[in-house]
Write a protein that binds this DNA or RNA. Structure first.
Length: 575
DNA sequence: GCCGTTTTCGGCCCGACTGTTTTCAGTCG
């Protein structure tokens, strides 16, 4: 069985869960969690590092012990430490930790006193009224557990960033209209531009007597009030999205923003730096003893620990603190840096608008060029273009280019990569185009080596320019296909072609860590909307968010190039 | 279990809210 980084991370998380239930040293538990997160976010696979003879203890948060355990997992597919834990703690207990309101202490108590191991057993125990008799458990706790179990069994979903935006923007506007409210900001993973969010954290600055809390819990989308205090309230909307509101004083806004934007790992690292300087950092400010030394702005918080301000998208403790210390933080790409879009559809295939409408919409958004890349013939469900229809489209684009000012249309195609790695249209026709965007739309289930070979072969066909949505995942719907992305990235560098970061919010593919890997290999990323209607061009902002999470700078992105430079780069792939 | 400009031992982020307590433990973020 091939061992992926995610497998190792999952084993370490399991170990952490079970240790926690056992009542182990919390710092030891944290060490496993830290390691799990580090391995999960690592670009190259641990397996490949071991094969190269690299010393794993050079990875932060991996010491001698964990390096040994990682090697054992890579070699044998399992961990003796986990197996031994299973002898003492039933494996199923870890799943109970996922139920809100149940932490390690309560799970352990339920197990020891009532023999509860699974959610189903827990449900029975609650219904029989056996919970309320336990020390530390009361009637309310019992009822909360029952409710949490019911929602847990329906499984709480995460929300895509675009969906979250649809819900939170009107709420922010509503809160801003409250008397006494000064400023309302969404923090949390939303501000870090994560592709999905579990819940939303909103910060508001308000005068002491402002009714903002009451107004928040009275919002007409609210289904349930989870908790409500003076400075913090938590509600669940009818769509099941949880939203937390915190009211902070103006002088604390920077500290609160920093604190509630996270990530947790980033904040721990920042507070540790503070600690080394004898500073206490919390959501109210930075303190030396009882004296406030910073906190009104985020800049002041970072400055207090000797760091420049760090962009929210970087705050994952994946090296941004070290980069900030060295003064080598990336200057992240911005939406305004994009000069064009190299992947868009028209009604010729499965889009809704005409070429002209798409061109004008792109121009309206300040873009200088747009590639028309409809589907190719084998994607019949999308009315993919055959040779005759593509030839006609080429002529139409040439006519439009004569006519339109301020926007240049590239002749392109989103050509299917067939199972054997050949492309879905003849080379002679592809050679008449400006840009060839290749994509996998079939045979997602090929095993890793075959899928990788298929894609690499396609990239090496003449005229291949950009690999579209490289992993094929659809958030919440379809997993990425099994492909050796590190190899694909290396091959792209050899071939001189490009990878796409597809900006559709359900794709956001390439993912952030692979963007980082592509950057380090010198492979340019094309941030494309894959728009199927004019409004779809607005998705570019989500692509920019993911690109920023992947540390990309303007120079790392293909379509920040001027029309002239881009023509030259595309030409070099068209041979 | 990791880590080191307080360095090989002794630390390890910190506060709000809830419920069951009567001064605090557990959970969460």
């Amino acid at each position: 069985m091939p061992i992926h980084n995610a497998d190792i991370a999952a084993i370490f998380d399991d170990i952490a869960d079970l240790l926690e239930i056992e009542g182990a040293n919390p710092f030891r538990v944290r060490a496993y969690r830290n390691a799990a997160r580090t391995i999960q976010a690592l670009g190259p696979s641990v397996k490949s590092l071991l094969e190269k003879g690299e010393d794993l203890t050079r990875i932060p948060r991996i010491g001698k012990d964990l390096a040994g355990k990682i090697k054992e997992i890579v070699d044998t597919g399992q961990s003796r430490a986990l197996a031994e834990l299973h002898q003492r703690v039933p494996a199923a207990l870890a799943a109970l930790l996922k139920i809100p309101g149940l932490g390690p202490k309560r799970v352990r108590a339920l197990h020891e006193a009532l023999g509860v191991n699974t959610a189903a057993q827990l449900q029975r125990a609650v219904r029989d009224g056996r919970i309320r008799g336990l020390a530390g458990f009361g009637e309310k706790t019992e009822r909360h557990i029952l409710e949490a179990l019911e929602t847990h069994m329906q499984k709480k979903r995460r929300f895509g960033i675009a969906t979250a935006q649809d819900y939170v923007e009107p709420l922010v506007a509503y809160l801003e209209k409250t008397p006494g409210v000064d400023q309302v900001t969404v923090a949390g993973s939303y501000r870090r531009c994560k592709e999905t969010v579990g819940d939303l954290d909103i910060l508001a600055t308000a005068s002491r007597n402002s009714p903002v809390m009451e107004r928040f819990t009275a919002y007409d989308e609210v289904d349930q009030i989870v908790s409500q205090g003076e400075t913090r309230a938590s509600v669940i909307l009818r769509c099941s999205l949880q939203i937390d509101l915190r009211v902070v004083e103006k002088k604390s806004l920077g500290a609160a923003l920093q604190y509630f934007t996270g990530s947790k790992a980033h904040n721990i690292a920042v507070r540790r730096l503070g600690q080394q300087r004898g500073l206490k950092i919390n959501e109210y400010g930075v303190f030396k003893g009882n004296k406030r030394v910073a906190g009104a702005t985020e800049q002041s918080v970072y400055a207090s620990v000797g760091l420049p301000w760090i962009a929210p998208e970087l705050r994952e403790n994946r090296g941004e603190i070290e980069a900030a210390q060295k003064g080598s933080l990336p200057s992240l790409v911005q939406l305004a840096d994009l000069k064009g879009d190299l992947h868009a559809h028209t009604r010729a295939s499965d889009g809704q608008d005409s070429i002209r409408e798409m061109a004008l919409a792109a121009r309206e958004r300040g873009l200088r060029y747009l590639a028309v890349t409809d589907h190719s013939r084998s994607l019949t469900i999308a009315r993919g273009l055959d040779e005759r229809r593509l030839s006609a489209q080429i002529e139409e684009i040439e006519r439009l280019n004569e006519e339109l000012d301020g926007i240049h249309l590239f002749k392109g195609i989103e050509v299917d990569i067939l199972e054997d790695g050949t492309l879905d249209l003849p080379e002679s026709l592809l050679g008449r185009l400006d840009v060839i965007v290749g994509a996998v739309h079939s045979k997602f289930g090929l095993e890793r080596a075959k899928q990788t070979r298929r894609i690499v072969r396609a990239m090496n066909r003449p005229h291949f320019s950009i690999l579209a949505h490289p992993s094929g995942r659809l958030l919440g719907e379809r997993e990425a296909y099994d492909v050796d992305m590190a190899q694909v990235i290396r091959e792209a560098r050899e071939r001189g072609c490009f990878l796409e970061l597809n900006a559709q919010p359900q794709r956001l593919d390439l993912i952030d860590t692979y963007c980082q890997l592509a950057k380090s290999e010198g492979v340019l990323i094309s941030i494309d909307s894959d728009a199927h209607r004019t409004a779809g061009l607005d998705n570019l902002r989500f692509g920019i968010g993911q690109a920023r999470r992947g540390w990309l700078e303007r120079a790392d992105v293909l379509n920040t190039r001027s029309l002239r430079e881009l023509r030259k780069l595309l030409k070099s792939t068209m041979q």
